[in-house]
Amino acid sequence: MAKGDDLDPKGLIEESYKIEGISTAECRSIFLDWALSYQGVSAVGIAALLARHGLGTDHHPMTITLREGLLAPHAPKRRGGRRGRVVD
């Protein structure tokens, strides 16, 4: 596998688009590896990856995964119980 560039240091995202029949779970795993090794602001990197690879690949599992990566995470819900109500 050839090395990538600053946007895709390991070339993982590019390679994922070349794998026939790749699953969503595999794309999420690749995306996580990319996110852990990416040195920039992830939202900017994701947008750049979509601009590079996303044209005409709307239904590809990696395109879907990248789009999900741009969504804001859900705010955590407060868990119930005594611990949540009592201040030490």
Rank of each mutant, 00 (worst) to 15 (best):
R67W: 07
A47C: 05
L55P: 06
R83T: 10
R67Q: 07
A75Y: 13
Y38T: 00
S23W: 05
S16I: 02
D8H: 05
V86P: 04
H59I: 12
L55V: 09
L49N: 03
L49M: 11
K77S: 08
P9Q: 04
E26S: 06
I64N: 01
D33S: 09
G69E: 04
S23H: 08
Y38H: 10
L55Y: 07
G11E: 05
L32H: 15
W34G: 00
C27H: 02
K3G: 13
E14T: 08
I30D: 00
I64C: 04
I19N: 10
D58H: 08
G56W: 06
D5M: 00
A25T: 15
L71Q: 12
I13S: 01
S29W: 09
R83L: 13
L70F: 12
S16K: 01
C27V: 03
A75H: 13
S23Y: 05
I46P: 02
P61Y: 03
P76S: 07
K3F: 15
D6A: 08
P61K: 03
P9L: 04
L71S: 09
L7R: 03
D88T: 14
I46D: 00
K77F: 10
T24W: 12
G40N: 04
G45R: 00
R79A: 12
P9A: 06
E15T: 14
D88A: 07
A25V: 08
K18L: 11
G84K: 10
P61I: 05
H74R: 06
L50I: 09
R82M: 11
R28T: 01
D58E: 08
L70P: 06
E68V: 01
G4I: 01
H74D: 14
S23D: 04
A72P: 09
K18E: 09
I22M: 02
H74Q: 10
S29H: 12
Y38M: 04
D58A: 08
H53C: 02
D8S: 01
R78F: 13
L32M: 13
L71D: 10
K10M: 11
T57S: 09
L66I: 08
K10E: 10
P73D: 14
E26I: 03
P61N: 02
K10R: 07
I46F: 00
A35G: 01
T57Q: 14
A2N: 13
V86G: 02
V87H: 10
A43F: 12
D8R: 01
S16N: 03
E14A: 15
R83A: 11
P76W: 06
G40M: 03
E14F: 12
G21K: 07
G69P: 05
H59Q: 14
D33I: 08
G11I: 03
C27A: 03
G45T: 01
G4R: 03
H74V: 12
A51G: 15
A2S: 13
P73T: 12
V86A: 07
S29V: 06
A35R: 11
P9N: 06
K3Q: 14
E14C: 13
E14Q: 11
G45P: 00
A51R: 15
S37F: 06
A47I: 04
R28P: 00
I19V: 10
Q39P: 13
R82A: 13
R82G: 01
D6L: 12
D8N: 05
H59K: 13
T57D: 07
H60C: 04
F31K: 00
H59F: 09
I19L: 08
D8G: 01
E14P: 03
P76E: 15
